[in-house]
Design a protein around this nucleic acid. Structure first.
Lengths: 198, 198, 198, 198
DNA sequence: AATGAATGAGGCTTCATTCAT
DNA sequence: TATGAATGAAGCCTCATTCAT
């Protein structure tokens, strides 16, 4: 029973992601979501109180997934450089996937600037990302790869700012073939920031 | 005559800006805009063909204003360092103004990932921003302040990515008192990127 | 299930007929139709994509009904004269019914002069009517009742023109008591046309 | 002053005719009419109380013009046959003109079935048309061209019914090249009705 | 547990009409 | 006289939500 319900909710959330990716946050309807999930509109309301509940759980779900992927990527590597590389590569996955995920994510960011609930969810995601940054930077300092006098927390935040800034700029340019340019440039810039003396 | 009409349109656009800032891009209604402007709903349609027209002109208007302010800021300064400083300060204006402007701007970015018209307008804004970056960097190289081997265009893009990334991260944290932290960190990071040898 | 939906659509179409009869084609609103049907406005949109869909289906429905009644009437009779009589009588049903039906029909004709969809539906109705005429005339020629040298198709068209012309003229006079006069005169005229030698 | 006003009203009515011909009775707006007349919307309201006033005066105007043309046509001829010919030819003027005039006229007929004012105006037009019919038939009887036992008034009405029925049927078929067929058939039918013995 | 029919609030838009200039 | 800016009522349509089955 409980299991079935969990599966159902997951099914709806997956459908919601697709639906939001296709139609946009404010254009998506519960009908879109139900259609995408291959269920009736009633089901959606049966498992979720209302539209906002679905969407906030969707935000939680996708930020969790992004973080998991990032975390998995760096765990597999040993050195700070390798981890940094893996991190950035796990963010710049592919034009198609980035487009889909970041479109949805940007929709949520826009909402989050007004909706405290979304903001909180996103903040949690930020904390996770900063955590990854701190881990890499701390290791790099220990290795002697990165500057000894780096402010770890500050650098982690700048690192994430760079990543988001690049990904958004890429997304807004609408040119898939620039994906590699932005990935490389982002990586270079972060490296410079972390290795620059003083 | 013509003048009056222009003023009216401006009045409506200003009201639209306030209304979008308050309610968000997808929750704003023409009634909100009319109320904010202190006019009847009919007036809005008298000066603008439809809702999308208002919103796209609003995007044009605010990106133009942001750019103008940035451009004005750097024009007043002489050295590359001063210009860079002025640029970042003109972006990080104040918590209140940044919040309002960037909320609206983020709404548009979210839309732009799907709407080509918005994307085009934003691209034009990007070009302007990159132009400012290029100007500063070129001057800095000439002065010898910045690294001689910088790729001017690439650096300009990374510069803007850093700025947007920081501003968005600040906005999403919902803490006004971090405004200064992000301004300073952003400036530092860009400086590092531009002055780091090789 | 399907049955229920069909009934609902029928209910709405019937209501639409009443509403158009009462308010006229261009003054009728979806609210009128919903009220007449005793349902909420939403129901109308649930079963019909939009207003035009309702109205075109209404045109199809009423022309089909008129034709069916006419066809049924002539089928029951044997001789050409009897059939002709029955045909005209089935058209000139009663002042009340004619008024309601032809008011609506005239609204559609007015629209049809510009709207190809309506024109097509009406043309189909014309073809049916001409078919009835042809059937009667062909039989009459075979019987020797009607002139041997009649152009069947042309005569069928003139027959219908006479019928519509009379009914419209009657409707426009606004005098119910002339209904019988027009019915008889119409019948006489058609008889004359079909029996006149040469 | 008075003269200027009359000219202005005429100008607006002519524009109204074009506008209704183009957009249809219920889709036409005062802006269409003003544009067509090359004047401002205010002018239209200055010379006409409201929209209905314009439209009813337009109906009067066009029925008067149709009648005048018909009357002029038969006046120029001597014999009943010639007059009848001229009459029908003056009605079936040309595909283009008939389309424009009858579209507008049909719009009014549809309205007239509900609006007493329009109905009255149209009735006056009918009387004029019947008058023409009576004149022709009476002459034909005197000449011995038409059947002696014709009921003049009734025949005049049937004559007009035939004309309107044919013109409407032609209009609804949407085939310009059938214009001649309907004109000839209409004339033949009327001739048959009027010459048939008994 | 699931469906989808029904509701009705609320949005965008059109347009006749008014009125200050 | 003439203009056209401004109003606001009213229409169509969408869609989250409810509820009987």
């Amino acid at each position: 029973m409980k299991k079935k319900a969990e599966e159902r909710k997951d099914q709806v959330l997956k459908a919601a992601f697709q639906a939001v990716a296709n139609h946009g946050f404010d254009a998506v309807t519960l009908q879109h979501i139900a259609d995408q999930a291959g269920v009736s509109k009633g089901v959606v309301h049966y498992y979720f109180q209302n539209k906002e509940t679905i969407l906030s759980q969707l935000l939680e779900s996708i930020t969790a997934k992004i973080y998991e992927a990032e975390h998995r990527a760096i765990t597999e590597k040993q050195t700070a450089i390798e981890k940094l590389n893996a991190y950035v590569h796990s963010v710049f996955l592919s034009p198609e996937k980035n487009k889909k995920f970041y479109r949805v994510y940007m929709d949520f960011l826009a909402q989050a600037s007004r909706n405290p609930l979304y903001r909180e969810i996103n903040y949690h995601f930020y904390e996770n990302c900063w955590g990854i940054g701190c881990e890499i930077i701390t290791l790099g300092k220990k290795e002697g790869t990165f500057s000894a006098n780096l402010d770890v927390e500050k650098s982690a935040k700048m690192m994430r700012a760079m990543i988001d800034g690049c990904l958004i700029q890429w997304l807004m340019c609408g040119q898939d073939d620039l994906h590699d340019f932005y990935k490389q440039s982002c990586l270079e810039s972060i490296s410079t920031l972390l290795t620059s003396p003083e």
